[in-house]
Amino acid sequence: MPDTRLSFKEMCAKFDVTPRTLRYYEYIELLEPEKEGRARWYGPREIARMTLILRGRRFGFSLEEIRQWLLIYRQKGTKPQMQAWLDLADRQLAELDKQRKELDVAIADLRALRDTAAKEI
């Protein structure tokens, strides 16, 4: 993969994102593709960053949190980045656990109301 470069269109297809999303990630400095005239080329670094961005979004991190986390690597290296990741992950795990508990309560309430309504029919 060292020589792999994807065009703008290929990058959108590979990651199943819209052109608008890809342009926005570039605008907020999450991605920095090589530019040749109007063409954009995404190398291994940008492909890896996009993988991390989408993974972070799936875990519920904001784009700003992801941007800051990626910036740590550039400024301070791997170890500080991993420590920042652990801190972010611990915080997000606690938030997801809280959301799961709230969903469990909502599901139990809805199920009880549904069962009550079903009995009345």
Score class of each variant (00 low, 15 high):
D109T: 13
T18E: 03
L86N: 14
E26Y: 06
R100S: 11
P33S: 06
R100V: 13
R23Q: 06
W69Q: 08
R23G: 02
E65M: 06
R40C: 00
D90A: 13
A112C: 02
R49S: 02
W69S: 08
W41P: 03
A13F: 00
T4P: 00
G60F: 07
S62H: 05
E29H: 11
I107G: 01
Q68E: 15
R23N: 10
Q92G: 04
F8G: 11
D90F: 05
A89S: 15
K98R: 10
I66R: 01
L88G: 09
R40G: 07
I53N: 04
E10Q: 14
D104L: 08
R58D: 15
E95T: 11
D87Q: 12
Y27D: 14
D87F: 00
W69P: 11
D16S: 13
T78S: 10
A112W: 01
K101L: 13
R55Q: 12
P33G: 00
R74M: 09
S7I: 06
E10G: 00
Y27L: 12
V105H: 05
E10T: 01
R100M: 06
I28Q: 04
L93D: 15
E120F: 07
F8V: 01
R20I: 03
P44C: 06
M1R: 09
I66G: 02
G60R: 05
E102G: 11
L86T: 15
W85R: 01
D97S: 11
F61I: 02
E65S: 07
P19S: 05
Y27Q: 14
E32M: 09
R57T: 06
F61S: 00
P2S: 15
M50I: 01
R74T: 14
I53S: 02
R91F: 01
Q83L: 13
E26T: 05
K79C: 03
R57Y: 06
A117D: 00
D3M: 09
D97Y: 03
R55K: 13
L88I: 13
Q99R: 15
E46Q: 15
E32L: 10
R111M: 11
P33I: 03
A108S: 13
Q83G: 03
I107V: 10
